[in-house]
């Protein structure tokens, strides 16, 4: 499964970057979301997959019995997911406001702050 997932992750990266290279702001966000999935899944896969049980200590026991899934990447990913969510929510609203300000979804229209010569 690692191999298959590695390919999936590669595809997620490729697709994420590809979407960021489009001219649409909405697609930009989609690209960022995909990159988020990609990096979360990557952490998960790279710290070795196991089909074994989740890292829960059975009632009465003091330790988890092998084999179990590594809890560390899970905790990291949880944090990363939530943080990513916050950022994406902000980005969404930002894009909406930018859309209202520029009156277009086309990122090539969003150039005024870079090129003084294009500024009125």
């Amino acid at each position: 499964m690692e191999v298959a997932l590695a390919i999936v992750i590669g595809a997620l990266y490729a697709a994420g970057l590809y979407m960021m290279l489009r001219r649409s702001m909405v697609k930009l966000i989609a690209g960022l979301v995909l990159l988020g999935y990609a990096s979360n899944l990557l952490i998960f896969v790279v710290s070795r997959l196991t089909r074994a049980s989740p890292p829960l200590v059975p009632e009465g026991a003091h330790s988890v019995a092998e084999p179990f899934a590594d809890p560390v990447p899970q905790a990291l990913i949880l944090t990363a997911i939530v943080i990513g969510f916050g950022l994406q929510a902000f980005a969404l609203v930002l894009v909406r406001r930018a859309f209202q300000a520029v009156n277009s979804d086309d990122l090539d229209q969003v150039t005024a702050s870079d090129r003084p010569d294009l500024q009125a």
Binding site: G10, A14, L17, A38
Partner: peptide, 29 residues
């Protein structure tokens, strides 16, 4: 994308001994 895939495969090629994993599992309860 291919680069990332390759990296994952290379890294997962070797078994990982994570001191964190076992410690957390033992310390949690």
């Amino acid at each position: 994308g291919a680069v990332v895939t390759l990296m994952i495969l290379v890294i997962t090629d070797v078994p990982l001994v994570s001191p964190l994993k076992t410690w957390f599992a033992d310390a949690s309860e």
